[in-house]
């Protein structure tokens, strides 16, 4: 392998190898918007100059003294945490039964989990707005409709992580073994299967969390300013002080980043077992 690298290096004649001429511009372009926002969030003042005048953490700190931000943060956490809890309670049994008892369900779910990807959020909103604007369930404008909708759009992330985790061990066999040893199905599930799924659940929760916290379309169309979540708040203040909003964007992004990293980083630890299969 290393020798192939040698040959490549010699083939391009000393200078930067060809693939770096491809990678460098692409990754620089990808990092520019992020870098600019980060710099803006840390700049004291950035007028008509190429680089900012000085650096400061003021903007980042000011965010945490802004009541409107804190309220939006709280609302987002409420909506996202509730949907995650609800979707865990709803989807966990489905994944477990699909894996252990009803193979037909697994085949169905494989198709079903694609719908939230296949249908653009704007299209779903059209139906949701008309179904729940009035009638027996007037949910539009309340956080409840967001919570339920988020359960359905988090389905692919939730279900995939959970089913993958269940595929990592033979849950049916564990259930049989536990019951032969005298446990009831419920106890067997709670005491034997669930602990083995801890990692999968954590991945599911973190991935869905970072996805939902960045959700804007439903939040805007179904609830809007009546219940200002982080994304709506960001949207509303996007024209105000660039530095402050930059700090908001960076904070949000870091938040999402840490969550994804917690999800992925953990899965990396668990991955070797999977790779060997």
């Amino acid at each position: 392998m290393s020798s192939n690298a040698d040959r490549r290096r010699s083939a391009t004649g000393g200078g930067l190898p060809l693939h770096w001429w491809i990678l460098a511009p692409i990754f620089v372009s990808l990092s520019l918007p992020l870098a600019a926002t980060l710099l803006y969030a840390l700049a004291t003042r950035w007028g008509a100059t190429l680089l900012p005048d000085g650096l400061t953490l003021d903007w980042m700190l000011r965010l945490w003294h802004t009541p409107r931000f804190l309220e939006a943060f709280g609302r987002s956490m409420f909506v996202v945490a509730s949907s995650l809890l609800l979707s865990l309670v709803l989807i966990l049994p489905v994944a477990f039964l699909a894996r252990t008892r009803f193979p037909w369900l697994e085949r169905w779910m494989d198709v079903l989990v694609l719908t939230p990807f296949a249908v653009p959020p704007v299209v779903s909103s059209v139906g949701l707005l008309q179904l729940y604007a009035g009638g027996p369930l007037p949910l539009v404008g309340t956080p409840w409709i967001l919570i339920f909708t988020y359960v359905s759009i988090a389905l692919p992330f939730m279900y995939r992580s959970l089913i993958n985790s269940l595929r990592g061990f033979d849950a049916a066999e564990l259930m049989d073994a536990a019951q032969l040893l005298g446990a009831s199905p419920l106890v067997a599930f709670l005491r034997v299967v669930l602990p083995n799924m801890r990692l999968g659940i954590r991945i599911a929760v973190f991935l869905s969390f970072s996805f939902l916290i960045g959700e804007f379309v439903f939040a805007n169309l179904l609830v809007g300013t009546r219940f200002e979540t982080l994304q709506i708040y960001l949207f509303n203040v996007r024209r105000e002080s660039g530095h402050f909003t930059s700090a908001l964007v960076i904070t949000l992004f870091l938040f999402i980043l840490i969550l994804t990293w917690l999800g992925n980083g953990r899965s990396e630890v668990a991955a070797p077992k999977d790779r060997n299969r």
């Binding site: 520019l32 918007p33 926002t37 008509a48 959700e215 804007f216 960001l234 660039g242 930059s246 992925n264």
Partner: peptide, 27 residues
């Protein structure tokens, strides 16, 4: 890093582009 940028979407992305390529954007 690619994973990271793929998470950068929607309103924050639009804002970052305004900072970078808007009328008074850095770039």
């Amino acid at each position: 890093f690619t994973n990271m940028t793929s998470n950068f979407a929607g309103v924050p992305l639009a804002f970052a582009f305004i900072i970078l390529l808007g009328a008074n954007g850095a770039l």
